[in-house]
Design a protein around this nucleic acid. Sequence first.
DNA 1: ACCTGAACACCGTTCAAGT
DNA 2: ACCTGAACACCGTTCAAGT
Lengths: 250, 250
Amino acid sequence: MAKSFDSVWTRAPRQPRTSGLTRDQIVRAAIDLLDSEGLPALSMRKLGGRLGAGATSLYWHVANKDELLELALDEFWGLVDDGGGLDGSGSLRETLTTYAYNLRAVLLAHPWAATLIGQLPSWGPRAFRLGERLRRTFTDAGFQGLDVYLAGGTVNSFVLGQIVPVIAMEKAHGGPVRQQDVVGMLDGLATDYPEMRADYHTVMPEDSTAGQALGFDFGLMCVLDGLETRLRGRPGADTVSGETNATGPS
Amino acid sequence: MAKSFDSVWTRAPRQPRTSGLTRDQIVRAAIDLLDSEGLPALSMRKLGGRLGAGATSLYWHVANKDELLELALDEFWGLVDDGGGLDGSGSLRETLTTYAYNLRAVLLAHPWAATLIGQLPSWGPRAFRLGERLRRTFTDAGFQGLDVYLAGGTVNSFVLGQIVPVIAMEKAHGGPVRQQDVVGMLDGLATDYPEMRADYHTVMPEDSTAGQALGFDFGLMCVLDGLETRLRGRPGADTVSGETNATGPS
DNA sequence: ACCTGAACACCGTTCAAGT
DNA sequence: ACCTGAACACCGTTCAAGT
């Protein structure tokens, strides 16, 4: 095909000095891609393409893909922090309930973050800021010493563990799961366990989103009850290791 | 190079009729590879190589890589089930403590499973068998209706959520994490949060494995306390939705 | 200082062809 | 029935070279 007339006017002007890629820009584009297409769909080439650059251009701003994902993960923690819940007004129970529901919502909105939490360290500034707020919440409530961190870890791990299988289900099903789909699956697969199957017919909520919320609420209450017991039980104690009931890790 | 003398005797005998690959064999080899090199290191080519076969041979026995991973994940659930803890002797508290520690240990021994739980459904026979045992544990203890499943989900999600970040830490560090490494990292990164840093110096256990176990124990006690509260509180209730304290998902 | 292209060593999966 | 090899459309990353 014929070349078009080249001239100063047809040729794209040289990019103004600082109009190249920014690390921020790259991270934002990565999060867009992660939100819309999911973690496995994020490739350096595709991301470069979206930014109108070669894939390898990204490597000047970022050491490798994992580093980019660490940056995205820290943005996620920033969203959790922004969601609030830890501003210090209200009872511990209210504060933690708000925080837990917020963390849950942000995780469901950015499911890739749940995967990354299991693969990369959360050592960015936003993660630390959130950690500090969580720490203050528990010290203000009266927790002391190691218990401050153990209590925070208990809430976080519960929320994370609650969401992780939900993400797997939605991925397997290719979208939000309806209760009837679960029932249909169980009727086909759990033929050896009639009681379980019957329960799914009779006792599970119609709306599986509501069911998941019920499970979350149930578990959260258990955790909060336990935390309050621990707080009231021995107000000045440094740790609770003396009242352990565990048989120990195997 | 010269061909060696070909004959019936030099030529390898035709494989006996059923000596080819087995699905079981493939899954076992996959788990070996996952245990020794981790999830990202598992490729169909490498797995085929280990079995003395072409990568593409595997596709006769297994539809795709995800299906293979589903099979491996079900084996994991089998290991959890074999670990016991749900045999029905002892109090609910004892039973659940043993179960939780066992689940934790099996997850730590096969960290890839924690990742897969977040990406694939657990709909294999061993997962169902374990689910049934868990169901019986809670019905025997007096839970009814939906609460049976909510209680089981609470224990499982706590354990899973507790282990997921530990896996990330070990991966980032390339091996088991020593407390001094965490302290060193925090001194460098959490400069804005002196109280947090000080706590890590004074209050964290020397042995970070012990620290993780403490955190697990603390949280598990919270969960168990909460479950017992719920059990004693309203022995005949079908669900606990009436006593929710949640502000609701956003 | 920032970006490009070619190149390397990989991936998962399909499919015609072999035995 | 079971396995192979070539092929396709991808990967992350390095590095010399450009501007």
